[in-house]
Design a protein around this nucleic acid. Sequence first.
DNA 1: CATGAATGAGTCTTCATTCAT
DNA 2: AATGAATGAAGACTCATTCAT
Lengths: 216, 216, 216, 216
Amino acid sequence: MGRARTNPAPTAPTTARGRRTHDALIVAGRQVIEEHGWAGFTPEAVTQTAGVSYGTFYTYFESKDDLLRRIVQAAADEMITESLVPDTLDDPYARIVEANRRYLAATGKAAKVLRMVEHGAYLDDNLRGLLLEIREFYVGRGADGIRRLQEAGLADPDLDPRLTAIALGGMVEQVAVVINELREPLDTEKMVDHLSRLWASAIGLRAPGAGRRIPA
Amino acid sequence: MGRARTNPAPTAPTTARGRRTHDALIVAGRQVIEEHGWAGFTPEAVTQTAGVSYGTFYTYFESKDDLLRRIVQAAADEMITESLVPDTLDDPYARIVEANRRYLAATGKAAKVLRMVEHGAYLDDNLRGLLLEIREFYVGRGADGIRRLQEAGLADPDLDPRLTAIALGGMVEQVAVVINELREPLDTEKMVDHLSRLWASAIGLRAPGAGRRIPA
Amino acid sequence: MGRARTNPAPTAPTTARGRRTHDALIVAGRQVIEEHGWAGFTPEAVTQTAGVSYGTFYTYFESKDDLLRRIVQAAADEMITESLVPDTLDDPYARIVEANRRYLAATGKAAKVLRMVEHGAYLDDNLRGLLLEIREFYVGRGADGIRRLQEAGLADPDLDPRLTAIALGGMVEQVAVVINELREPLDTEKMVDHLSRLWASAIGLRAPGAGRRIPA
Amino acid sequence: MGRARTNPAPTAPTTARGRRTHDALIVAGRQVIEEHGWAGFTPEAVTQTAGVSYGTFYTYFESKDDLLRRIVQAAADEMITESLVPDTLDDPYARIVEANRRYLAATGKAAKVLRMVEHGAYLDDNLRGLLLEIREFYVGRGADGIRRLQEAGLADPDLDPRLTAIALGGMVEQVAVVINELREPLDTEKMVDHLSRLWASAIGLRAPGAGRRIPA
DNA sequence: CATGAATGAGTCTTCATTCAT
DNA sequence: AATGAATGAAGACTCATTCAT
């Protein structure tokens, strides 16, 4: 982390055994960081969990941060994949519900790592970039959705789609944090319901035909 | 070896000089943590910034964590004080606007420390407690406001006040983070407007007499 | 901050090199404590004496006290082993002479460490325990010997074996201190002779057949 | 303790107030060392116990060791004074009993400090000198007594008075340690009786007229 | 490739002593 | 004289990284 490096730069593993060790380290790294947090995330702990020797760590990773970045990247990919709402779902409100449900679920698995890593984000530009990418994915998706609804006359046209997406996305994100980390005992399904109704009301979502704004 | 602590337990300074040094250390501590983050927050950095010798740190603080707690406590107090909305403000929507404006402003000054410290919250119960207290203040205040509006027939009675406060409070909190840390160039006043409109619409806030409260 | 220990808990070395370093540290530790006393016994001094880097200390020992305990344990074992009087020696007086001679000799090698460590004994329960064990070994052995002589009608039956062993054992112990530490120039062999005669007379040891046991 | 000194050398207090403070510090020092041991013996603790400010310490004492020396000197004087056996006591055995009783008693009050200080004796020549002086007092007195008894035909003439005094004096000294520090629950009066009988038997003390060696 | 020992700068904390008031 | 704040060298321990085998 800032020392000049004289070590051979790790190369992509060429043998099957190498691949296995490499992957085992990533899995172990994630497990360690989830179970013991940032402070417990040491090469020693990771290699021990992976069942390999200490030195092997630097055969595959340039540094602790290198492994961390890979873990975060994997967690981010996973989270985004799991958050995708199928195109087949047409009803706007149903899409909101589904997006929220999936976000809270995805978050339960991957966001632990992401949150834990946020501290590091103040120091490492690569990590900061990764986190921004994830955020951008959600904000962009939210903004697109809102814009489409506005164009369809289903949402308040005075709202700036991006600002609105940042705000409402933040709402869901923060609730995920509360659920997953502060362990306030919340009923997830009830929360999904509230989040969705709040989101819909906030943008003035109107059912195409009906007078009722929000389905009871 | 289990040696008992023999060092003077820090006491409140009795002389003016002592008071000055003590305060300088708290100021320096906050500055250091804001500029260099948790990782840069060392007794050495703090004393150097304050222009005193290393040992002086322990004249006033039991430990690094002791200072940290005081800084966080001060930041929390400051933040909450600055967030209070005057009782003289009666109009519900105006209160929402004011609360949001103040929150974003307070956050700009104090939340930097709080955010930076959140990582520590995974480890230290005192800090975690402090952060939870702050959150509880905002959640409680939000929930009370919503409940009152519901009782006055001005807000959607189907919403659980606490869940709603957590969600909408989270929205504002997260936006504050985005503004203050990720430095996405956002127009704060415009954001206050959006947050307030979203919050109001979300809970279905209705002007007592008029048909629609939110300006089109 | 209550960070959990993340450093590798020292394990027994698995390689020859590791064994060598480990042993070198123990040897160096004993040397340091003998030459510079408790106050000079620092990880830095020990590693420098052993010719390894500072950090290596903690590869093998959990703490300074950990090494200290091992040194003391080794010294204690060594001392007790060297103090054993062969069972083949039958004559009671000859056994007393032999025990004293061996004690003074053993003490010359090991007691330096033990004495130096006594100060620590006021603080650390493990060390205190070790020292008590050693004392108990000698007191127990002495008391047994006296009891047997009493039963054989060879020693004053009015003496409490344990009290007597504590007293006479203390005599030999203290003389060892004087010889080894205060460096009063004493003729060891002459001292052994005196100690043995005093011990024998004190318990009223009588040769089975003869009138007086102690040579005039 | 080895640093060049630039402080004004403390002078003997001239005012009554100064005298009082000076004495209070010595008393407090002894109390601290007895209650909290060597490790707790800090200028801070001493001044606090004496109820004066930290800096006052160096008004009266050059250093921590300076105070320590004065404490030890006082304890030594006290111990020796209390150990004196009145000249009016004529009977040799009674004198032995009295000397042992007084030694154990004196030791209970003063030896705590002395023992605790022995560690320092390895470092500081002044202290070592003080301890040697005390020892010499007892050894000399013991040797004189033995010599007189030998000259009176009451003790084994083959014993070297000095070696014997060292040995038997060591016996009593060590027993005092056991009683006072290791807190083996021993009946002091019974121990005095044993020590005296052992001492008398050891030197072959004979009652002037009688055949019995040791009075029952 | 794997192993595990070695490295040493860095961290927090202590405390005898000095100094300004 | 007294006060109590200031000093800073030194101590124990950590841990990311390197290296010999």
